[in-house]
Design a protein around this nucleic acid. Structure first.
Lengths: 200, 200
DNA sequence: TATTCACGAATGATTAATGAATCAGTCGTG
DNA sequence: CACGACTGATTCATTAATCATTCGTGAATA
């Protein structure tokens, strides 16, 4: 009676397809502006099928927002706060982050909405906030490392880290036209200035 | 037959009250999540009355977003791009902008939504975009001025200006807890680093 | 000053449309 | 044949917008 492996795989694909089209819709139309009907049509499945994968609209939304966090952790936290060459590590980190942010336009637009309406999406936002705080902490430690080695000017490390993540999300917000990664690359050296590298 | 001055004044107050509560609702609940019923209740007027001041919901939204731009222009553009002391002018500008952004939490949350869902609110977004471009232009000129005087390191002025406005809106987005202006003040010197001031 | 009149703002019940969620029935597969 | 995914019409709630009606105020008249 249990489903065959092929069926399970099919359902997994179906589920992921729903999440994909729902991400796009939630991002462009907003939570209330996105209807289950629109989702089902975009995913080419029946209205009722959406509810076999998600109990209700709210669960679908929460999944769309929180599911990608796991794999995002791997790439976003991929830097060494106690590196011997903190400047080089910072540059690498910025480059990585910039490319991630350049490539995840739709999802990040959605994140922006959750942050903006954090009272409405308080539980979901809370998870994002935890994620953000962990990132802030790790960036802070790298900044601290750079300052101890006298390679960065003295600033409150947590403040700088906050400004850095603010800048990342702000760029994503301001860059509405789907620009090429080239443009994003040109930001890197300027962003580095935020950390106050000391020229020798 | 025309209305008395007192009545006109009363209607003006009523209208502004609607705009005020609608701003709050649109910002926290989103466009679709905000109902005319909620607006009328929050404004303590009848449902139908909302429509004597605004033809439809969309017009109410557009007014809420675009109306404040005029007085915002005055404070946001209040700096001199050809100042003799560009560094000082930059610091003053940052300080002014930071205080404006710190104080306009609700409205800016709304702006964030319009930018995030710019395909949905394309006409309204277009107006915001024009406003933004004018600001970018003026900031660029100040940066150029500073670079010509060799007080700022050489960077593409428009890129730096873009990063600056991205940072402003990003901070507003990331600072969800209603912090004191003190915290915002601590950002100022770090933000200055973005422009690459040359120490002498 | 008192009374009537007329204009337009204010009201909220009503209308027509649309939403989320349900559920009885169908279909596919092991 | 039996289990569970799939379907979409149905239900019930909620929405934007309308509209017939009421209410308030200033002007006109006596």
């Amino acid at each position: 009676m249990p489903l065959s492996d092929e069926q399970k795989l099919n359902m997994k694909k179906r589920r992921e397809n729903i999440l994909e089209v729902a991400t796009e819709l939630f991002a462009t139309e907003g939570y209330e502006g996105t209807t289950i009907k629109k989702v089902s049509e975009a995913a080419n499945i029946s209205y009722g099928s959406v509810f076999t994968y998600f109990n209700d609209k709210e669960e679908l939304f929460r999944t769309v927002v929180l599911d990608p966090l796991n794999e995002l952790t791997e790439v976003l936290f991929d830097f060494n706060p106690v590196a011997d060459d903190p400047i080089c590590e910072l540059e690498k980190m910025i480059k990585t982050h910039i490319h991630i942010f350049a490539g995840m336009s739709t999802y990040l637009t959605l994140i922006v909405q959750v942050i903006g309406q954090h009272t409405k999406f308080s539980e979901t936002f809370s998870e994002l906030d935890q994620f953000h705080n962990k990132l802030l902490d790790k960036v802070s430690r790298l900044v601290e490392n750079g300052q101890e080695k006298r390679l960065l000017i003295q600033q409150e490390p947590f403040t700088v880290a906050s400004l850095y993540t603010s800048l990342l999300i702000g760029i994503r917000l301001n860059t509405t036209d789907a620009r090429l990664s080239d443009i994003w690359d040109s930001y890197i050296s300027s962003i580095m200035n935020l950390f106050g590298p000391i020229k020798k």
